[in-house]
Amino acid sequence: MYNNKKITILSHLLVWLVLFSMPYILSSGQEQNINRVIAHFWIPFLFYAIIFYLNYFYIIDRFLFTKKNLAFIAINAVMIALFLLVKEQSVSTFFSELQRTPPNTGEGEKGPPFKLFIYMQMLPYIASLLFAIAAKTTKRLTKTEAESKEATNYKLKSELQHLHYQLQPHFFFNSLNNIYSLVDISPEQAKKTIHSLSKLMRYMLYETNLELVSLSKEVDFMKKYIELMQLRVSDKIVINANFPTSETGVQIAPLLFISLIENAFKHGVSATKESQISITMTVENKKVLFLIENNNFPKKTDDKSGSGIGLQNLKKRLELLYPNKHFFETTVKNNYFLVTLEIETA
């Protein structure tokens, strides 16, 4: 902010320096009458600057932007008329040798019409006023746009934070349900599951508050979750998981894929039937492709473990984090539930 103000001040000084130097720049080294320069260039330029900065810093905000148009026009008209009068009086009083030739200097010689003379004198003042309006309007629009973007970003961050906090208890609740089912059947496995869950929750609580995390950390988190889920499923369940084995260098928003894996275990596992879950992740040119295929065992309407909060949360987060940079599709084909998620991270 300080640097921007400094640049603005320097640019204004440079512009006025160039304008005040115009008589010498245009004369290309020819001798100049200092009185003529003062009377016809520097005094008018001083008045142009006053018109510009009075409007820029006060009058436009106080009158034009508050819809007091008549007052705005009247104030500027009075100022322009006053400056024209002062300029002409200063020329006639202090620089008498520079007084203009009378409009009628002799037979056959006439000066410019009075109305044209006034118009030509007023034109630079009106130009200064218009420049002030243009500069102030541009600054106001830029500020409004910046404030709008800031408000949008704040809303986005708030919404993402809400979705993030919503995901954590949802994940924890589902994991506790899985542990509960093991307590009576296999206490030892339940203990291992609790220990594994504590590691997962530590990652969720302390390492996912950043906007982006490395994909390798997310992969490690998903592997641990799959290991946790394997403790409670029967031998009839075949789980195939393929993840990138080397560091990809990809940074991604945290916890985008875990809801899909949760969903596969909730809807793709049967206690009595053979079932299969296939999970594949590939990375190419900073584009992450995530595929899941599992048997489709729809939950009963009174079974709240499959409420779908995770998928709804994921869809909303993808819309906010990767607008026009993701593809997400779920389909059911031949009694298999298929998920395709593609994210452009670059």
Rank of each mutant, 00 (worst) to 15 (best):
K223V: 07
D184V: 12
Q251T: 05
D303K: 05
L215W: 02
L19N: 01
F94W: 14
H12D: 07
L129E: 00
E274L: 06
T280P: 01
S270F: 01
T142I: 11
T105A: 15
N33F: 10
V332I: 15
N55W: 03
P187M: 08
N55E: 05
Y203V: 05
P113G: 07
I126V: 14
S275Y: 02
H195R: 07
S307F: 06
E262C: 06
M22L: 13
E262A: 08
P298T: 09
L311R: 00
L338E: 00
E145I: 09
Q32K: 09
H164P: 04
E188Q: 15
E227H: 10
I25N: 08
S148Y: 11
S196L: 11
I9H: 04
D184A: 10
N177L: 12
F290L: 01
P323A: 13
I185T: 14
P124A: 05
L54R: 05
E274G: 11
S307T: 12
T193S: 12
V283S: 06
V250K: 08
T66H: 13
F47K: 07
V91F: 01
V250E: 02
F297W: 01
L256Y: 09
T137V: 10
K287P: 00
I239S: 01
Y206C: 10
T340A: 09
V183C: 15
D220K: 14
E329C: 07
A49L: 08
I75R: 00
L255Q: 03
E227V: 00
E211T: 09
N33Y: 07
F95M: 08
M79N: 09
N104M: 13
Q32R: 13
P244W: 08
V238P: 01
L19W: 00
E329T: 11
T66P: 02
T301I: 09
V37Q: 03
Y56I: 10
K299T: 02
H170V: 05
V15Y: 05
S148W: 08
K6V: 11
G29P: 02
F95D: 01
L341A: 08
Q99A: 06
S196G: 11
E147Q: 12
I133P: 03
A77S: 15
L228G: 07
P298V: 13
L123P: 00
T248Q: 01
L231K: 06
T272N: 06
N76C: 08
K299A: 12
V78E: 02
L163R: 03
H12Q: 14
Q189P: 04
Y165I: 11
I226H: 01
L70N: 05
